[in-house]
């Protein structure tokens, strides 16, 4: 569903690679967790997947489409929620959702049904006619999530999705992620909350200084680490 092949990225004229020869694959029906210390290259990798940054080398294939050769078609395959969703402050929540439904060409009945469903789940129905500038960080995140789910994407990509969400919304999001994958789609997300990654991810990749240092299921990672400890402990050992 999502495949990265030897992807590298360098910023400016620095010699140090932000992302260095990264390869992994996210399969259909899989929740894939992406963990690593601050500055390891998680957000850069995600930005290259969602066509906000161009890799210096390597290939990114989303649902069979190369995101550098056919950018537009690739964009239709995923939706993305950044770690701190900066949205248009002067636009009302509902106007934002209509915009998202329009640009993804979501049929009328489907957009009405999905927006109602997710507004209900994230409990922002009452605020949806307010300007986004009046929203709290968490509410902006919820709105961005609703906007990202409108077109029922093949690959749902999230950067630090739990930050800012209240416990209920966080719980609901995890349910949505699982439900999404149960319908044969995929979820790819980065997180620092290793407990969450351990509990909900089918597979996990650990990135350090731009390089993938481990990929696999929790069992596989434990086996390679020769330890039955939690992901947190293994992560600390691997990234030290």
């Amino acid at each position: 569903m999502l495949k990265l092949e030897q992807v590298s990225k360098t910023y400016g004229n620095k010699n140090e690679k932000a992302v260095d020869d990264v390869s992994f694959e996210v399969n259909a029906g899989e929740i894939f967790g992406f963990v690593g210390p601050n500055g390891a290259g998680k957000t850069t990798t995600i930005k290259m997947i969602v066509s906000l940054l161009a890799p210096n080398s390597g290939k990114i294939i989303i649902n069979g489409i190369d995101n550098q050769e056919n950018i537009l078609e690739a964009k239709k395959q995923f939706s993305y929620v950044p770690d701190s969703p900066e949205l248009f402050e002067k636009i009302k929540g509902l106007e934002y959702l209509k915009f998202m439904a329009d640009v993804y060409q979501v049929p009328t009945a489907a957009r009405q049904e999905r927006i109602e469903k997710y507004l209900d789940i994230f409990e922002i129905k009452d605020a949806v006619n307010d300007p986004i500038g009046s929203f709290s960080h968490g509410m902006k995140q919820k709105l961005a999530l609703v906007g990202a789910l409108i077109h029922d994407p093949q690959v749902f990509i999230l950067d630090e999705p739990m930050v800012g969400l209240d416990p209920k919304a966080s719980f609901e999001l995890k349910k949505i992620m699982r439900d999404h994958c149960d319908r044969g789609r995929s979820v790819f997300f980065s997180t620092h909350v290793l407990d969450v990654a351990e509990k909900i991810c089918d597979r996990i990749a650990i990135i350090k200084k731009g390089k993938i240092i481990e990929v696999g299921t929790m069992a596989e990672i434990r086996e390679k680490a020769g330890s039955q400890e939690s992901l947190e402990n293994i992560f600390l050992e691997l990234t030290e």
Partner: peptide
């Protein structure tokens, strides 16, 4: 910021009904 008025489910649906081109 000045808040908008609360919308009913029908009002929300109505606002979303018209599809626009990209």
């Amino acid at each position: 910021m000045k808040k908008g008025k609360r919308l009913s489910s029908d009002e929300r649906s109505k606002a979303l009904i018209k599809k626009s081109h990209g």
